Simulated scan of single mutants.
Amino acid sequence: MAGTARARAGWRYRVNVTARAVAGTIGAYAVAALFAAAMARLLPMPRVEAIMPATLLAFLVGPAVTLWAFLARGPWRAWAGVVLLAALFAAIGWAAGAPT
C-alpha cells in the first residue's frame, strides 16, 4: 500500500513539474512575443525603430514569466498567470492598432 501511494505521489510530482516547465518555456515565449509586439506599437517612435527596445524589454519578461511559473502555488495558478498575461498583452497590442 505504501509503495502505491509513493508511486502515485511521484506521478503527481512529475506532472506538476512538467506543467510548470511547459508554462515556463512555451508560455514564457508566447508572453514575451506578445509583449514585444505590444510595446513596439506603443513606444513613441517610428515602429521600425521601436522594435529593438521592445525586443530587449521582452528579454526581461520571458525569464520573469518562467520564474512565476515555478514560484506559483500550483500548476493551475502558473498557467492562469501565463494565460492572463498573454491575453493582456494581446489585447494591448490589438488596441494599439494595426502597424503602419
Rank of each mutant, 00 (worst) to 15 (best):
A30D: 02
A50F: 09
R47L: 15
L34Y: 10
I51F: 10
A21I: 10
V82R: 02
Y29T: 07
A21C: 06
A28V: 01
A96W: 09
A2P: 07
L85A: 00
A87H: 02
F35R: 01
A38L: 03
L85G: 00
A96N: 04
T66W: 01
A78L: 03
G62Y: 03
E49I: 14
I26G: 03
L56W: 12
L34K: 10
G27S: 01
V82Y: 01
I26M: 04
A96V: 03
A2K: 09
A30V: 11
R41P: 04
M39D: 11
A19Y: 08
A72N: 02
I26N: 01
A21W: 04
L42N: 03
R47F: 09
W94C: 05
T100S: 13
A23P: 10
G93K: 10
R6K: 14
P75Q: 07
M39C: 12
T4I: 15
A9V: 11
A69C: 06
A58E: 12
V83K: 05
A58H: 05
A90C: 02
G81M: 08
W94N: 13
G10V: 00
R8G: 04
Y13H: 15
R14H: 01
A7L: 15
F70R: 11
A2F: 09
A37C: 14
F59W: 09
A40H: 00
I92E: 11
L67D: 02
G27M: 04
G62P: 00
F59D: 12
N16L: 12
P63H: 01
A37P: 11
A98Y: 07
E49L: 14
A95F: 06
V82G: 00
A96C: 01
L85F: 00
A38R: 01
M1N: 07
A40Y: 01
W94L: 13
L85N: 04
A80T: 06
A95H: 13
M52I: 13
L71R: 13
M45Y: 05
F35C: 12
A9M: 15
